[in-house]
């Protein structure tokens, strides 16, 4: 276990693993997203209350889930960088931020478009919507803070600290629909015992969730390779890796 953990601290190892995993992640993501889109748009029956508007769930829920997952990844990676002083932790955190921010924006936009026909408004200062908007601001803050320091190591530490402090927002987003009165519906898939969805609606959603996660993995692998090259460009192995291509 620890050998594997220490290997993940090695930039050449991570660079090689990320390059090898990228095409697999992309291929599997294309399959899962392709199936989820067709099954969700064509084969899933309309919802008895929301009609065909419920199909927005197939992009909204995976984007919202990914926005939380990417933020947690960023905070954990930043924490690893801070505590163990592992440079790869900061590289992964830096690579995750723009991807997570883009999926947070996607969750907000699709949620807004879903809200208009269901709630009669594009936006409400609802606990779930507001906490998700704060998540977007946190991503933007972390991305802006890192290059604001002349010393990149200080920038990494400051960004890691902000992302760790901001991680408190993740459970707030998740539980906001239970803790406060909210326009937003409660848990649909993650209900303990039985999801509140029939299989014909649920399987495309699970496929989209998996596809978005795999896509995130693929994009993260590419960005991590870029981060490693930026941070290690004076290293001999980088020169050999660049020469060999």
């Amino acid at each position: 276990m620890w050998t594997w953990f220490y290997k993940l601290a090695s930039p050449p190892y991570v660079f090689g693993v990320a390059a090898a995993l990228t095409p697999w992640f992309f291929a599997l993501a294309a399959l899962a997203i392709g199936y989820g889109t067709v099954a969700g748009l064509v084969f899933a029956p309309p919802d008895y209350q929301q009609g065909d508007a419920f199909r927005i769930i197939y992009v909204h829920a995976p984007a919202a889930w990914l926005s939380l997952f990417a933020y947690t990844t960023m905070a954990v990676a930043g924490g690893i960088g801070l505590i163990w002083r592992i440079k790869m932790g900061h590289a992964v955190a830096a690579a995750t931020a723009p991807v997570g921010a883009s999926f947070t924006l996607l969750a907000l936009v699709t949620g807004s478009l879903w809200g208009r026909p269901m709630w009669g408004t594009y936006w409400a200062w609802d606990p779930r919507l507001t906490s998700e908007l704060i998540l977007l601001f946190l991503y933007v803050g972390v991305m802006s803070l890192r290059p604001a320091f002349e010393d990149p190591a200080r920038g990494d530490r400051a960004a890691a600290l902000l992302s760790i402090v901001g991680v408190v927002n993740v459970p707030i987003i998740h539980y906001s629909v239970l803790w406060w009165n909210s326009l937003h519906q409660g848990a649909t898939v993650a209900k303990i015992g039985k999801p509140a969805m029939p299989g014909s609606m649920l399987w495309p959603l699970l496929s989209m969730l998996l596809g978005f996660m795999l896509f995130y993995g693929a994009v993260l692998c590419i960005r991590v390779r870029g981060e490693v090259l930026n941070r290690e460009r004076q290293a001999t192995w980088v020169r050999e890796a660049v020469k060999s291509r």
């Binding site: 997203i33 889109t37 748009l41 065909d52 508007a53 199909r55 927005i56 992009v59 909204h60 984007a63 723009p98 991807v99 883009s102 999926f103 924006l105 996607l106 936009v109 699709t110 478009l113 879903w114 208009r116 026909p117 896509f215 994009v219 590419i222 960005r223 390779r225 870029g226 981060e227 090259l229 930026n230 460009r233 660049v242 291509r245």
Partner: peptide, 29 residues
């Protein structure tokens, strides 16, 4: 007018992520 813009924007976000990540790697290289 609500469903298709959502799927269109999702496609745009996926494409932007792919394009920007590849651009980032190419610039680093």
């Amino acid at each position: 007018r609500y469903v298709w813009p959502c799927f269109g924007f999702a496609g745009a976000v996926l494409c932007w992520n792919l394009w920007s990540a590849r651009g980032y790697l190419a610039a680093a290289r």
